[in-house]
């Protein structure tokens, strides 16, 4: 057994390398200093091959795939890109206006309530006003009839259609999906929403689109049941921002991103704290480790043969 260990570890553990009676102690158990140049070279080569292989696989995965005809979205420079960057809340507010004036005609957002807007894009009074402006089905009353009432803060955004079948039949059989979590539900997230909304164009030669469908290269298959919704000046912003199609697409994508990830800002705020506290704790732990090991690392064994 000792022989095997000797061969594997090149006798480093078992034999003293320093002539004389003082051993080099335990210091070398945790350093590379004792490694020969050749072994270091082999280890480095293995590391390079491993890293190279991994990056090759990654690069191949990133390459353009010609097999599908869907256009993949670019990454746009969002205000909330970046490790610590919050949402642009003025943009969320404009995005809500776009949703309310344009998308809400067809799309529900059944998981977002008016109260969620408070402190994000609207004051409490404004959110109450927003809620009051919609009619919410409620009931039954004493006679067993359903009725409609103005919305309250606790109400969720109303559904434009009574049910999915009504939504389908109003849209040539295509169901407008609920937009509450749409950026989380599509590859590319808010980039995809932006590209989809601004990407409508004439179909290329040789591609024909069925009646009632529209050509959009970003949509899987190319033919989408949603007509282009955003044109310059289809609405006006409350804050006076020029309502160009791309401005509206950017704002509504930001709004939908917020709807999918309302914890986004808190998460980034927390990441600053986590990084700060863990670097502090790491520093302390490292100091304590060095402190505790200093005895072990600097001790020396001496063998004094009996006289």
């Amino acid at each position: 057994m000792a022989g095997v260990a000797c061969r594997v570890a090149r006798a480093g553990i078992l034999k003293t390398t320093v002539p004389g009676i003082i051993t080099p102690g335990t210091a070398k158990f945790s350093t590379l200093r004792e490694m020969t140049t050749a072994r270091k070279a082999v280890a480095a080569a293995l590391g390079v091959i491993g890293a190279g292989g991994a990056s090759l696989v990654y690069a191949l995965n990133q390459s353009v795939k010609a097999s599908d005809l869907t256009l993949h979205t670019a990454n746009f420079p969002w205000p909330h890109d970046g490790l610590f960057s919050s949402f642009d809340h003025a943009s969320i507010r404009r995005g809500y206006e776009v949703y309310k004036n344009v998308c809400a005609a067809c799309h529900s957002m059944k998981y977002i309530a008016f109260r969620n807007l408070i402190g994000v894009s609207h004051t409490e009074d404004e959110a109450k006003e927003e809620a009051k402006s919609v009619q919410i089905p409620d009931g039954p009353d004493e006679e067993g009839n359903m009725f409609e009432r103005p919305g309250k803060l606790s109400d969720y955004f109303p559904n434009p259609y009574a049910n999915d079948e009504a939504a389908r039949s109003a849209n040539n059989g295509a169901l407008p999906p609920d937009l509450s979590y749409i950026t989380a539900a599509r590859h590319g997230g808010e980039n995809y929403i932006f590209s989809l909304l601004t990407g409508y164009c004439d179909p290329p030669a040789g591609v024909s689109v069925r009646e009632g469908l529209y050509y959009n290269p970003y949509f899987v298959g190319g033919a989408i049941g949603m007509a282009q919704a955003l044109y310059n000046e289809v609405m006006e912003y409350g804050d006076g921002t020029p309502a160009t199609a791309s401005q509206m697409a950017k704002d509504v994508a930001t709004f939908l991103k917020w709807a999918s990830e309302p914890e986004h800002d808190d998460r980034k705020r927390m990441s600053i704290k986590v990084l700060m506290i863990f670097s502090l704790l790491f520093g302390i732990s490292y100091y304590i480790k060095r402190h505790k090991w200093s005895v072990l690392k600097s001790r020396k064994f001496a063998y004094k043969p009996p006289q």
Partner: peptide, 15 residues
């Protein structure tokens, strides 16, 4: 300190 950093980085964007 950490909230100050965050607010500073995102000056003008937060509600």
């Amino acid at each position: 300190v950490s909230d100050g950093i965050f607010d500073n980085v995102n000056q003008g964007k937060l509600w």
